[in-house]
Design a protein around this nucleic acid. Structure first.
Lengths: 142, 142
DNA sequence: TTCCTAATTTGTAATTGTTTCAATTTAAGA
DNA sequence: TCTTAAATTGAAACAATTACAAATTAGGAA
């Protein structure tokens, strides 16, 4: 995403998306909260400031941002979509203990090989699952 | 999985799983159908032969097999888990047009680097999404 | 083999994340 | 300011999965 702070309205306009207060708030939220929130986290947090916010608006806005390729949806969790501001290509680690999703900065050398298979690749996701460093420390391993 | 045909009962026993007709059928199904079915596909297909089969049994059995690390669950789809007989390490491509999940045989060189982050890695999933060769051919590109 | 018991299966109901839809409101161009 | 297509809202529908209690069964013990 890499938006210059507070240029959210301009950012939306540039991408041909009509500017609304709800979209601005959701966009700002995603830009500030890089912890890969799900739709409900976004909804509950933003509803505090704007009680009339609808869950459907959150889903609609996330779909809109996705369709313009401004955010990514992660399917790393088994039960929900998590959303990711697009910064640079990176992969994800899910801790099955605490549920945290951690960014993993590694290059993906797969792409070329897969492309040779003749399929058109639009998205590449590297998902790692296990137990994170912090959880391991808390309980001394396994 | 790589089970010698019809040794399913032995295979379960070896892994400390009580043998039941339902488990044998589900295990056989997964071994024969390498198209990454979801729980409902398994349920609907097996219910034809065994009408008293319960959806819950399918979910339970899949959980059991997973917990013994005999099958893998794929989160590549946004709405459902797809199940994969464990053969050798491989990655997956999801065609967003036809929904097919295709095996991708590439090595994963990430592991070492990620391990250096101090997290314990239990699973590695490489997910590619786009449009498959066949769908591209059908409609001439984009 | 028969009995026993814990584990499994079953079916229904509940839950969760997401989508649909129609009515109301609103952004932004004329 | 007017207009209109698009966005927001809230309720209801949906789909995948889980919870739960009752009935059945696998497999070891007697």
């Amino acid at each position: 995403m890499t938006v210059a702070l507070d240029d959210y309205a301009l950012f939306l306009r540039k991408n041909g998306i009509k500017v609304t207060p709800q979209r601005l708030e959701i966009l700002r939220y995603l830009d500030k909260n890089r912890n890969h929130p799900n739709a409900d986290m976004i909804y509950r947090d933003l509803k505090k400031k704007n009680p009339s916010l609808s869950r459907t608006t959150v889903y609609n806005t996330l779909d809109t941002l996705r369709s313009h390729n401004l955010i990514h949806a992660l399917t790393i969790s088994e039960s929900e979509l998590r959303f990711d501001s697009i910064i640079n290509p990176h992969q994800h680690f899910l801790c099955k203990k605490c549920g945290e999703i951690i960014d993993i900065e590694v290059e993906c050398p797969y792409l070329k090989e897969v492309l040779q298979g003749g399929h058109r690749i639009d998205e590449v996701h590297g998902y790692f699952k296990g137990v994170c460093k912090d959880c391991l420390a808390k309980e001394g391993g396994s």
